[in-house]
Design a protein around this nucleic acid. Structure first.
Lengths: 135, 135
DNA sequence: ACTAAGTCCTCGAGCTACTAGAGCTTCAAG
DNA sequence: CTTGAAGCTCTAGTAGCTCGAGGACTTAGT
């Protein structure tokens, strides 16, 4: 309970991560458990801020919770090789690229469908036709 | 129970939609409930095949269940205007494009990170640094 | 010391769209 | 009549939070 300790709301404001989410990260073990006041309220140390920011960045980049867990473990082993980290990042990039490709195909299909529609009644609607098509 | 009726496994094979998923679509009201044999097994009419294919196409295009529901309702009103359908499709396309943009940004960030990494130890790893950065 | 506002606590449920499994019944072929 | 495939229901699990109920704590002001 030093002066620099933060209550959960303060931590939320400092990091931009929601209060409920912070508690959730504690529950699932991403963020180390905070100390507690006599009344049971959490108080966080500056190290928690760092760690939470790290987690936030990872999530913003789309890493799964499991991957974040691994990245955190790695980050703590300062003289381990960064091989694993690089591999994880590359695998994730690959996954992102796959999603991109899929989404682009999807975009085109939608464009085609919408383009074909000239308005009018459902019975002549090209969009509905396209969706109903047997192939 | 006409001859053309299908059991759930047949329907699954015909449409490429899993058995469990078909039952699920029945439960949530996307697919009308099937008739039952005396023993309680579902038997589907040809109209179910059509409907299920429609649903499948919608899902492949990324429409949410709620949107599929609306599209199905619309598809049944053959002389309604297809305005709503077109609007739904356009909104969905917009959403897809937003996701694409976000994913592309993400792809670039990951590329940058990975590119910056020259191997070595965690304490010098650019990837970890990037993830830990306070901004 | 008392009060009121604001913040925090736990626990449980809900979201999307399925998917998997246990334990049991029905169906169709031989 | 037996056997094996396929069907049935019901429950729970997935990812990653998010929300709400009902209550406890903290702190500033009086």
């Amino acid at each position: 309970m030093t002066q620099s300790d933060l209550r959960i709301g303060d931590l939320a404001r400092h990091t931009g991560v929601g209060v409920a989410t912070i508690r959730y990260y504690g529950d699932v073990g991403l963020l180390p458990e905070a100390g507690r006041s006599e009344g049971g309220q959490r108080h966080y140390r500056p190290s928690h801020v760092e760690r939470l920011m790290f987690i936030k960045h990872c999530r913003e980049l789309g890493f799964s919770q499991d991957n974040v867990r691994m990245l955190l473990t790695q980050a703590d082993q300062s003289d381990a090789s960064c091989e694993d980290v690089a591999r994880l990042a590359k695998e994730h990039l690959e996954a992102v690229r796959k999603k991109l490709t899929a989404l682009q195909a999807l975009e085109m299909s939608l464009e085609d469908m919408i383009h074909a529609c000239r308005g009018g009644r459902i019975q002549n609607c090209r969009i509905i036709e396209a969706l109903a098509a047997n192939e």
